[in-house]
Each structure stands twice: as C-alpha cells, then as structure tokens.
Nucleic acid binder design. Structure first.
Lengths: 214, 214
DNA sequence: CCGAGAATGTACCAACGGGTACATTGCCGT
DNA sequence: ACGGCAATGTACCCGTTGGTACATTCTCGG
C-alpha cells in the first residue's frame, strides 16, 4: 500500500503525515533492511516528501528507531487478544502454541524487522528502553497455564515458562524468517495450505507431549 | 582476521588471492549484510585491491553468490562429521540434537549469512543449483535413527524426519539468529555458559520426549 | 632468456543517497 | 481578517560507492 487511507486529504495534518511516513517506512525497512532501504523510496511512496522525514524524525536512523518501537508496540497490542482461558491446561497449551503459529504467519513484516535488527546485533533496540522486558505478558500467561497443569498433575514440574516460550517462538519465527532458504534446500513450501495445517498441529503436538507427565 | 594465513606471500598466486577475497568477503557480508557490506572494505581487509574482486568474481553480487555457495558447502562438509552410530535410537536422537546445537553456535557467521539471504527472499540462493536438496544428507541420518527407534518400539511412528529436522533447526537457528532481540526482551543472555548447558540439554529433552512412545 | 599473457595496481568516474538551505503556504488564535 | 508559526515543497550539495580504463609487472613455457 502506498497510501494509508483514502479519506479526503487535508492540506495540512501533522499527525497524518507522520503516521503515513511511519507506516510506509515500516514496509520499506521490512522489505529491504536498514542499509537497503532508501529514504527517497520511503518518501516517494507517501503523499509527502523526503523533507518531512527529517522534519518529523530527524533522519534515517531515527525513523528506523520509530519504526522498531511502533512495530513492537503493535505486536504487544495484538498479543493482548490471546485468550485460552476456558480450556484445561493441556488444551490451553496446545491452543496457545497454535495461536502463536497463526500470529507469526500474520505478522511477517514484523518478523522481518526483528531479523533485520538482529543482523545489526540489536544495537538499535537496546536504545529503546520502552521495550525492556516486553516479554513479560507472554510469560505470565504461560506461567499460569503451566501452573494449572502442575496442580492438576498433568504437566511435569521441571520446565519453566521461559523454556516453553523459547521453543514455541523459535519454531514460529523460523517458519517465517527462514522460509526461503529452508524451503529451497528441502524443496518444500512451508506456507502451502497443506503444510500450514500440518505444521500448525505439529508445534502443539511437540509442546504438549514434551510437557505431559508420562 | 584480515589475513587468511601467515605463510610467506608469493607475489602472484591466483588461487590464494581468490581464496583470500572469498574469506574476507564472507566475514564482511556476514557482519553487515549485502547492502551494508562495502566492496572497498572487503578489499582493504585483504592484501590485494578492489580491482581483483572484479577480476575474479565480476562484481559485488557475484562475489556474494560465491560466498553463499562456499559457505553452504563448508557447512555440508562439517555436517559429514556428525556421528551417532554406536548409540541406541533414543540416545542417538538426543545426541544429534545436542550436536546440532553445538554446531550452530560454532558457525554463527554462516547463520547470519542465511538470515541475510532470507531478508532477500532467497533470490540469490535460488540461482545456485548446486545447493538444491542439500538437506538430504541430514534427512537420511535422521531417517535412519527414527527407523531404528520404530523397529525397537521406542519411537512413535507418525513423525517423519522432516518434522524432526524442522524442530531442531528452528530451535538451534533461533538461538543464534535472534539472540540480540530475544535476549533484550527477556533480559537474558542465551549464550552465557550456564544458559548454554541448559539450552543444549533442553532441545534433546524436547525431541526425545516428543518422539517417545508413551 | 625472452616474449606473451595472466595477474595486479593506480587513478579515476558517474550515479547514488542521505541530508540541508531556503522559500512558501495554509491554518489557527485573537 | 490577519499575523505568525507550523507544516510543506524545491532544489541543491557533497561524500560515498560500485565499477572501470589503462598502465604495469610477474611468471612460465618454449
């Protein structure tokens, strides 16, 4: 998308201009990486000019920082929607794994941004104090499910939330982040419809059978 | 490393010049990504000049292609060394997962290259026919272990080698590829010595308990 | 030992790319 | 209704960067 919305364009609207730059910048950085992204291209894809990037953000790097911060905040927002409350611990855990899988497939641009940031050894994210310990909400939910499972005697008691989160995240991120090389090396399309169904069930299966008492 | 070796420098040595360029280019591309890498920097870190990059490879992109191909070949070579032959299926599987974990931690530059290539949607690797189905050897080994386990009745029979490989790869790649953002968001250093021991055992544990008949 | 071609070095170029100086215009409060 | 400032546009700058023209030198076969 080049325009953020089709509502009649007011001549002057600082908020709108800033938001549009941020949205387009998110796309472009996710597509091309930090070095690969071109300030001129970002500007061209908006209804405004390059000048505005410097007016609102200060420069390419600050724009990228704003993109990162906004992207992480959006994801945290989306994660709030996760709900597995009614289910028993085993099914809740399976559900959480599967929802996480879906969630990652739906936010590929975000995962690309994360991959890009890691290429840069996290030098930018470390400057965003607002993101410190952003992982806590996800951990709490996991913790609660794990605890219920332990109380009911269906889950082993030597695994903590962090480990579970790591396994699920790694699996789901990999599906998106490494789809091209992995798909090529094994001649498979991880995102073909049949594959998705199978791979979605797979992570639930792995987690549940790993955590279950035997 | 700026120099590949300290052996006396012969004045003219095509092979050596080419190899040195390739080695340094591998470092630089892995450090900075494709767009971020500078041809001038690669040249500066060798005992030769930029001119030679164009003489031997043709340009930045072809040099990157050569780096990718060579890196994948090196990894396949290293994977040949994997040996779990003497062990029973369960211990062989655990061992394989743990060795894969070690292997990934030891080849971080390679994993960075893979991440970079995925940012580019695999457009380069797809042009390297020599890498097609490079994953087969790893799959065969897994297949053999799985089959032994099924015959002995210790492994379930509804999981195939690809699924196991995916789980292990995802986990091990993630440790390296996402260490910076993940570490920051959860305030943990995945590569601290205690972490390593734990995380190494974890993947073996997950795979074995998932695959084992109950 | 010599000539030819492979291998290398030097100096340069043109396009690109992030950033800015300066002019202008629309909007809001009084 | 107008003055002032926020917001925007235009045109330009200059260091960087991938790439190359041309000269040179080493090496090796005959």
């Amino acid at each position: 998308m080049a325009r953020v919305s089709d509502q009649p364009i007011r001549q002057r609207d600082a908020e709108r201009t800033r938001a549009e730059l941020l949205a387009v910048a998110t796309e472009v950085f996710a597509e091309s990486g930090y070095s690969g992204a071109r300030v001129d291209e970002i500007a061209e894809r908006t209804r405004t000019t390059k000048r505005m990037i410097y007016y609102y953000f200060g420069g390419k790097e600050q724009l990228y920082l704003a993109v990162l911060e906004e992207a992480y905040r959006g994801i945290r927002e989306a994660e709030r929607g996760l709900d597995v409350g009614e289910l028993g611990p085993v099914e809740a855990m399976r559900r959480l794994a599967e929802l996480t899988y879906d969630h990652h497939l739906e936010h590929q641009a975000f995962i690309r941004l994360v991959a890009i940031e890691n290429i840069h050894r996290g030098e930018h994210i470390q400057r965003l104090q607002s993101l410190r310990d952003l992982g806590q909400p996800a951990m709490s939910l996991l913790d609660e499910i794990l605890e219920r499972g332990r109380v009911e005697g269906v889950f082993r008691d030597d695994v903590d939330a962090f480990d579970v989160h790591l396994i699920i995240s790694a699996y789901c991120v990999f599906q998106v982040a490494n789809q091209y090389t992995f798909g090529y090396l094994f001649s498979r399309d991880l995102h073909a419809p049949e594959s998705r169904t199978h791979l979605r069930a797979l992570i639930g299966d792995v987690v549940v059978s790993w955590l279950s008492r035997r």
